[in-house]
Simulated scan of single mutants.
Amino acid sequence: MTKHAIATREEWLAARLGLLAAEKELTRRGDELAQRRQALPWVRIDKEYRFETDEGSATLADLFKGSSQLLVYHFMFGPDYTAGCPSCSAIADGFNGVVAHLANHDVMFAAVSRAPLAKLQAYKQRMGWGFPWASSLGSDFNFDVNVSITEQQQLAGGVEYNYQRGGHAMDAASFPEPVTQQAAMTGTDAATYTRDRPGMSAFVLEDGVVYHSYSAYARGLDGLWGMYQWLDRAPKGRNETGVWWRRHDEYPQHKLG
């Protein structure tokens, strides 16, 4: 027998209307936060970054492809990975459907990773993705937007991520099990895996000049996880006990019917 509260339809409706008021307030707060994001000052980018793309070598301005705005997802796929991060892969499963809509609203989208382009292309084909994905290998881009660190920085500790500077140098035994588990899924050890971090950044192009307008990391990316938006509305919520997700081609196929 269920231990969850059971109610009549009338009792349920009364409780639902109380929740609706809170949901509406959250929506209004979200609108206000979006306006504050858009009101942030811009930072001019004068450094020349180079990327390798399906169309050849490109600058950051080239990634706009004629749009005035660019959204970048910093996908965890380091040079030594054999496959993309499973968490980033779960997020990226939602990209294909929005890219065309963004492009027709003056917003270009691209994922960027440090892995060589050939690795990205092969993984992209495996996953069935069509969104633009550029390699920043050999560029300072990932390091300058605080989503990658060097091995020396990792050994020294005290690096910056998610607008905080902290952390201690970590040995193999210091990494929590979920990190070690995900590292193994990328064909690396935990230290190598965590030299790349997830994030997203927004840029704007005006009069030939690129400006950085916004970046978010860690839990700031929650809204991009399509599956979590659905789970938060499911009867049992996220209902997690560790890392449960896999790449979409690694689940038992019988689950899909």
Rank of each mutant, 00 (worst) to 15 (best):
Q153T: 07
G128C: 03
G84Y: 04
E25S: 08
S113A: 00
L205T: 06
D189I: 12
G208Q: 15
W230R: 11
F109Q: 11
A22R: 11
V99P: 05
L221V: 03
G242H: 15
G226R: 02
E48F: 05
D171R: 02
G30V: 13
E52F: 12
A183Q: 02
R44Y: 06
D31K: 15
T8D: 05
R126K: 09
M76Y: 08
E55Q: 14
W133C: 04
L63V: 13
A156W: 05
R29C: 01
L20V: 02
Y163T: 12
H212L: 08
S215F: 02
Q154D: 09
P79T: 11
S87G: 03
D196C: 14
Q182W: 01
R50V: 11
L40M: 11
R197Y: 06
Y81F: 15
Y81V: 15
A183F: 05
Y123W: 05
P132Y: 00
R233E: 06
G157H: 04
V179P: 05
A58L: 09
Y211E: 03
S174D: 06
H212Q: 00
G18R: 15
D144P: 05
A92R: 04
P176H: 10
E206Q: 13
Y161R: 04
G226H: 12
A39I: 02
G128M: 09
L19Y: 12
R219V: 07
C88I: 06
L63F: 14
V209I: 08
L33D: 01
E48P: 03
L17Y: 07
K119C: 07
E206G: 10
R28P: 14
F175V: 15
N239H: 13
A191D: 07
N142Q: 12
G257W: 01
G138D: 01
V43Q: 12
A172F: 05
W244P: 03
T192M: 13
R165H: 10
Y214H: 14
A14G: 08
R238D: 01
G97Y: 03
L120Y: 09
M76T: 00
A111H: 06
A61T: 08
Y217G: 00
R29P: 10
F141K: 02
Q182R: 15
T186P: 07
D106H: 01
G208T: 13
G187V: 12
L63G: 00
A183P: 01
Y81W: 12
L40C: 00
L33P: 00
M108T: 09
D171S: 14
H254S: 09
Y214P: 03
D46T: 15
L205I: 00
S68N: 14
G78W: 14
H4K: 12
A191K: 15
Y81H: 13
K3D: 04
Q182E: 13
A118L: 08
W244N: 06
A111E: 00
V107P: 02
L256S: 03
P41N: 03
R246V: 11
A216P: 08
L40N: 01
P235T: 07
R238P: 02
E151A: 10
